[in-house]
Amino acid sequence: MWIPCHAQKKYEREYAIRQSAVPGKAVEFVKSMFKKDKIHWYGEESLKETTIEAKLKSGGKHYSIEFDKSGEIQDIEILSRFSRIDAETSEAIRKRLDKEFTKYKVVKTQIQYKGSKSDLKRAILSDKVPAAIDMHYELILNAVWDKKINYFEVLCDHEGSVVSIHEVVQRNSDNLIY
């Protein structure tokens, strides 16, 4: 496990794209799990790479399915709540966050699945996570870290160990404040 001494900043730029501009294997993979649901496609540029993301709502759950630009699956994220994480794991996460941040509030929780196409498909369709799936929790915190007041993205593994912390670069909101 490695925790950065200084939270790295996370820059992202995203834009809507048409399904026709998405690699066929990405479309095929999403449609194999979500046949009737409306899928929104986005391109996402970060400092490291360009990815493609499918966002959709199905059965009351919000899914984000991320691919590399060739259409290879990277991960699936499902919107959840911190209170839904099992007690032992959430306690481990809390202990770590208490040490890392002066104060914090979890404002968004996503469960992240990584694995082969077939294991990911089984995890989504059966609601039972195969052992081969690499599961993480991605949290967004409204927090104070090293006197910095901001949102932070924290990635934890399935046992609650913190894998990384990124400071989220906030969009300018001066036009909404003044």
């Binding site: 992202e12 730029r13 995203e14 834009y15 809507a16 986005y42 969009r171 909404l176």
Partner: peptide, 16 residues
Amino acid sequence: IGFEKALNGINIDPKE
């Protein structure tokens, strides 16, 4: 109360 919505994508990025 104010609402702000990008006309392309989710976030309001530069040149949007």
